[in-house]
């Protein structure tokens, strides 16, 4: 990755984290931990990899994103606003009455949201269908599926994984956000997923693990072209990544921070962003 590109993506990742924090500050609560953990992969996707145009959100040949862990909507909304799909100010309407930015992603409300998600597991099959449909139509595009490590407790995710590999849906990229936590605690304590890379390999994927908060590693992984086997990338991430206090909060799936907490976090993020320049 060129140094200029890397700097641009680092800045974008900071801006996404700032956007997430502003959304949650405005509403007073929200799914902050799992939003922050995917800020880096979203920065690489929307800042570099995905071919999509805010002026043509319905273009059939666009690359598509399905954030199956739909509660990370605040992260996707920040990325979409920064990309120009809608006004940045709209981020402050998160979960307000009549908003276009509900807690969980909704393709009927939010420009740029490619699929409605939120009932965990369901986005996996939807993403398979979108990618398979594009493949049958001969469209040269990819679908990126972000799925949570807690989410894959759902059996539907494994039905979808089996189908992806068996039917060679290799224009679909699985991105597993392995942030090690779910609502009630650590995944290893709730329902241990064991080695995710092994699991996806056993299902017939070309599977590998990277530091999911490292922009360069994400970029390299996403530039990999799939052969017959579809690609599954296990993103080794930190829930709450980028805001120390959130990272260190045990129950950080959904938080109710005070405005002064958010202000402190925003000040720090802005400071670090400025230092990059």
């Amino acid at each position: 990755m060129l140094p200029e590109k890397k700097l641009e993506l680092r800045k974008l990742a900071y801006k996404i984290r700032i956007g997430i924090t502003e959304e949650i500050k405005a509403r007073g609560f929200g799914h902050i931990g799992g939003s922050l953990s995917i800020a880096d992969v979203l920065a690489v996707l929307y800042g570099d990899v995905m071919r999509c145009d805010p002026k043509k959100p319905g273009m059939p040949e666009r690359d598509k994103l399905v954030c199956s862990k739909g509660h990370a909507g605040p992260a996707v909304y920040a990325a979409l606003a920064l990309k120009g799909y809608f006004s940045y100010d709209e981020l402050k309407t998160l979960n307000q009455p009549g908003t276009n930015l509900p807690s969980h992603c909704d393709r009927r409300k939010t420009p740029g949201i490619d699929m409605t998600t939120g009932s965990l597991g369901q986005g996996t099959s939807l993403a398979v269908g979108m990618a398979l449909g594009d493949k049958i139509k001969g469209r040269d595009c990819r679908t990126f599926l972000i799925v949570g490590d807690g989410e894959i407790n759902e059996g539907q995710a494994w039905e979808a994984a089996m189908f992806t590999a068996a039917k060679k849906v290799n224009n679909l990229v699985w991105l597993i956000d392995n942030n090690k936590k779910q609502l009630d605690g650590y995944t290893k304590d709730i329902l241990d997923t064991f080695n995710l890379e092994d699991k996806f390999r056993a299902f017939g994927f070309e599977a590998f693990t990277i530091d999911g908060n490292d922009l360069e590693q994400i970029s390299t992984a996403l530039s990999k072209k799939a052969g017959d086997k579809p690609i599954a990338i296990v993103l080794d991430t930190v829930k709450g990544k980028g805001i120390k206090e959130v990272e260190e909060t045990a129950a950080n799936h959904s938080m109710t921070p005070k405005p002064e907490d958010c202000d402190r976090w925003l000040e720090q993020l802005h400071k670090e962003l400025s230092a990059l320049a």
């Binding site: 099959s125 398979v128 269908g129 398979l132 449909g133 049958i136 979808a160 189908f163």
Partner: peptide
């Protein structure tokens, strides 16, 4: 497309295909 014995997945895939024009 024979999806195998996985009805929830089948319906999800069908809905995804609807979203891309089928």
């Amino acid at each position: 497309i024979n999806c195998g014995i996985a009805e929830a997945n089948m319906v999800g895939i069908a809905c995804g295909m609807s979203a891309v024009g089928f």
